[in-house]
Simulated scan of single mutants.
Amino acid sequence: MSRTKLDESAKPLYVQIKDIYRHKILTQELKRGDKIESELEIQKKFSVSRITVRQAMLDLEKEGMVKRGRGKGTFVIWRPGFEIPLNKFSGFTAEMERQGAEVATLQLQVSRRSMDPKTERMFKKHVKEEMICVERVRTVDDIKAVFSRSYYPLDDGLPEDEQEYGESVYEMLKERGVGAPARTKEWMHTELPNEEVEKALNIAANQPVLVCCCEVFDKDDQVIEYGVNYYRGDMYSFTYELKDE
């Protein structure tokens, strides 16, 4: 087995090993389903301790790159990034399932919030000055992929009990007689995650996220939802198709 020398004066050794395998996964040198060498093989390859190798693999697992199984080894679970079309109206779950991915809600928290001047302007038709905030961590193929925070007017009747929520809030709104989504206005930017987003998505502090803010309107052009979504920057790209009429 050929040995690879690490730079002991640079980053910690486990970070260097993690970065090497992360690069192999992102460049598809190691593909989804591939088995990574054993900890002992990696230990010999880089002339490091078993603890150093284990820390590198643990970090990769936290980032959703690999899955470790006792007695089975470490396998790549990462898949190439998803494209989300901006000129097509569809919910996150529906779009991911269309691309063959499995979506689930890992964490859900519902709370009541007071409106600020911005949301008061958005939800101007509503009498009550409070709103429901729904925070979710969504997984795609068992990887924490999106942290979302969505706001809805309190008088739309959404419950405050997390147990009553399914995958689609829009279906719940329809059941309560609220208009279905007719159009959205979205704006995006990239930023480094704050501590809350970093923890929610299990990503490093220096790993950028795509932030998508949106207003969802019904057929009467009234805002029925305001949302802020934090996407892992290494999992998603947004596309827009223009046609010459």
Rank of each mutant, 00 (worst) to 15 (best):
S111D: 09
R176Y: 01
P80F: 00
G71R: 15
R68M: 14
K31E: 09
S9R: 02
V137D: 02
G227F: 09
V127T: 09
R149H: 07
M122E: 15
K219V: 13
F238W: 05
I25Q: 03
K31I: 08
E97A: 11
F92V: 15
E102P: 06
K5M: 03
E198G: 05
R121Y: 14
L86N: 12
I42P: 02
K174P: 00
M122T: 11
E195W: 12
K35G: 04
G81A: 01
E120I: 13
Q107E: 13
Y170L: 02
D244C: 08
A200R: 00
D116R: 07
I17P: 00
W78K: 02
T52N: 12
I25M: 03
E164N: 04
D34C: 04
V223D: 09
M115D: 05
K185C: 10
G179N: 02
L154N: 09
G91N: 14
M96V: 07
E196Q: 05
T239M: 10
V127M: 07
I132S: 07
L192A: 07
I36S: 01
V103E: 10
E162V: 01
Q163V: 12
L192I: 11
Q99P: 09
R113V: 04
A94Q: 15
E61S: 06
P117T: 14
M96N: 06
N229E: 08
E95W: 06
E61D: 04
F123C: 08
N194M: 02
N202S: 05
A180Y: 13
V137Q: 05
V103H: 08
V209S: 05
M115S: 04
E129Q: 14
L30I: 06
H126W: 13
E167V: 08
S47A: 12
R176H: 00
E39S: 13
I25G: 03
D141F: 12
K199N: 06
V134Y: 07
W78R: 01
E162F: 01
A56V: 03
M1E: 05
F75Q: 10
K11H: 06
W78L: 02
T27Y: 01
R54N: 15
Y226A: 13
E198F: 05
R112F: 06
P153V: 03
S90I: 10
